[in-house]
Amino acid sequence: MIQTQATNETAEAIGHLRTRLNRVLLGKEDRIEFVIACLLSGGHLLLDDLPGLGKTTLAKAIAECFGAKFARIQCTPDLLPTDVTGFKLFNQKTREFEFHPGPIFSDILLGDELNRTTPRTQSALFEAMAERQVTVDGDTKKLSSTFFVIATQNPIDNHGAYPLPEAQLDRFSMKLEIGYPSEEAQLAILSKNHLKAPQEDEKQLSLATLEGLQDRVEEIHIDEKVQRYLIALCEATRSHESIALGVSPRGMLIWQQVAKAWALLLDRDFVTPDDIQAVALPVLIARLVTRVSDPKSVIETILSDVEVPTYR
């Protein structure tokens, strides 16, 4: 009974989140599902798309949903690591160094055009993304337990850009392209119907709710057969002739975690091979280094070649 109640609350919270995000990013229901899965899995999201497609709006909407602290970094070549992490300043009155936290000390961080900043600054995000802590002048400071990075990068205009290294790419759970909205969605955008205020009876979610959802993801069961299937897929990426760098063990763990979140979104408490396949594309495209120009086709080939368990 308690379990049922918890399940109902989970479904209700996810439903609220889905509704709110779909309201701000029109006509992108499928992308929203991936974003929620990424958020619930405790991972980080990389949006690889053109400017003006609603990336910042999406990040802000997530923060608003949970009443979370939102911060945004506009990455430029002259951005310093301390501009991200914060710095210590000597206080003349107290005769002590005081720490001034940077934008990384937020719940939701939007790193806009991450590939515009230098690798040195990019690497300042490494520790934060992987371990949810930053070290400034030898002092390690914990970040929010629900720390969520949405980074964007512009796929065109590569002059003066610093491509994200594989190590950093591997720390993102998934990479998404939002794409242009449909005609209907654009009509709604122009009429600004979607920007109406939340209804009064609409429930306000909290960070505790988000933490609860992330804990719920941890409880999702994954059978050994599904794990073996996941391993087979990862092995296939490592031995595929069109792939220079396959999925690392870390990537495999992230894949499993996202699949669990996906199962939760579908109101299931166990993972099926379907979930593994469903999240494969955004998860793999973030981390595979392919020798061909169309990584999607390679991923599709791998998914179709590796035998999926079918009740046998």
Binding site: P273, D274, S304, D305, V306, E307, V308, T310, Y311
Partner: peptide
């Protein structure tokens, strides 16, 4: 298990052999 085998054979007969990676 038997049903899956039967359905797979039926799909094969119908010229729609299920690829190994495709979910039933």
């Amino acid at each position: 298990r038997w049903l899956v085998a039967v359905l797979d054979m039926r799909f094969s007969f119908a010229g729609q052999k299920r690829p190994v990676g495709l979910l039933l």
